[in-house]
C-alpha cells in the first residue's frame, strides 16, 4: 500500500512540474498570435481543460454503465469522482473562456452553441451530484445516479445539436481545420505539453476523489460495526 502511495505522490510531483513548465512555455516559448496578440494564450489552458472535462464525463458515463452491469461499488466511485472533476474543469473552462470572450468578442457571455452546451453540461452534472446528496442508502444511490448519469450523457449530443442550429459565434476549430489555418509549430509543442499536463492533473485528481469515496465507505462500514458492538452492551446494562 505504501509503495502505491509513493507512486501517486511522484505522479502529483510530475504533474506539478509539467504544469509549471507549461505555464512558462505559454508565456515565453509560444509566439504572440497574428491578430489576437497575447490574449490568445488563454487558448492553451482553455482547450486543454475543456478536453479534460469531456474526457472525465466520458469516463463517468462508463462508470455508470459499469455499476449497472456489475453492481460493484467501485464503478460508482469512479462515476462520481470523474463527474466532480469534470464539473470543476467545465467551470474553469467557462470562466477563462469568458475572460477571453470579453477581450476578443467584447462580451462576457453569448448564447453560442459551444458555450450553451458547456453551460448545460454544467447544469446536468450539478443535478447528478444533487441527486446523490438526496439519496442516503449507498446501493440505491449508486443505482439511481447510474441511470441518471446515462440519461445525462445521452442528452449531451442532443443539447449540442439543438443549440448548433441556432448560430455560431465560437471560433471554428483551428487544429485540423481548413487549409491555411493552423498552429505555428512552437504553438503546437506548447499545446501538446499543456494537454499532457492537464490530462495528468485530471487523472491524479480523479484518483484522490476516488480514494476519498473509498474511505467514506470504509468509515460507514466501521460506524455500522461500532453501533453493532455498542448494542449488546446497552442490553446488558438494562438486564443488570
Amino acid at each position: 500500500m505504501k509503495g502505491k502511495e509513493g507512486t501517486w505522490r511522484l505522479a502529483w510531483l510530475a504533474t506539478a512540474i509539467v504544469l509549471g513548465l507549461a505555464g512558462y512555455a505559454i508565456f515565453f516559448v509560444a509566439p504572440p498570435e497574428l491578430r489576437q496578440g497575447n490574449v490568445y494564450r488563454i487558448f492553451f489552458f482553455h482547450v486543454a481543460i475543456a478536453w479534460g472535462a469531456f474526457l472525465a464525463f466520458f469516463i463517468s458515463f462508463f462508470g455508470c454503465i459499469g455499476y449497472l452491469a456489475s453492481r460493484q461499488q467501485e464503478w460508482d466511485w469512479l462515476a462520481v469522482s470523474t463527474a466532480e472533476v469534470g464539473l470543476a474543469f467545465t467551470t474553469i473552462t467557462l470562466i477563462i473562456g469568458s475572460i477571453w470572450g470579453k477581450e476578443i468578442w467584447g462580451v462576457w457571455w453569448t448564447w453560442d452553441p459551444r458555450l450553451t452546451t458547456a453551460f448545460f453540461l454544467e447544469l446536468l452534472y450539478i443535478s447528478y451530484l444533487m441527486l446523490r446528496v438526496m439519496i442516503v442508502e449507498p446501493d440505491r444511490r449508486a443505482m439511481v445516479s447510474g441511470v441518471f448519469g446515462i440519461f445525462a450523457f445521452l442528452d449531451v449530443p442532443l443539447c449540442y445539436f439543438s443549440i448548433v442550429w441556432w448560430r455560431t459565434l465560437h471560433p471554428q476549430p483551428i487544429i485540423g481545420g481548413a487549409p491555411g489555418t493552423g498552429l505555428d509549430p512552437r504553438m503546437w509543442y506548447v499545446f501538446l505539453f499543456v494537454l499532457v499536463g492537464i490530462t495528468a492533473l485530471m487523472v491524479v485528481m480523479i484518483r484522490e476523489r476516488y480514494r476519498l469515496e473509498a474511505l467514506r465507505r470504509q468509515v460507514g462500514v466501521l460506524a455500522a460495526e461500532l453501533e453493532e458492538r455498542a448494542a449488546p452492551d446497552e442490553s446488558k446494562g438494562v438486564t443488570a
Binding site: 447544469l123 438526496m134 441511470v147 445525462a152 442528452d155
Partner: peptide, 23 residues
Amino acid sequence: AMTAQARMRELLLPMLLLPVLAP
C-alpha cells in the same frame, strides 16, 4: 421513479428534469 424515494423529492424532480429537457 428515480426520485420517489429520495429526500426532498418535490424539489429534486424539476432540477433533474429541466436540464435534460433543454433540447
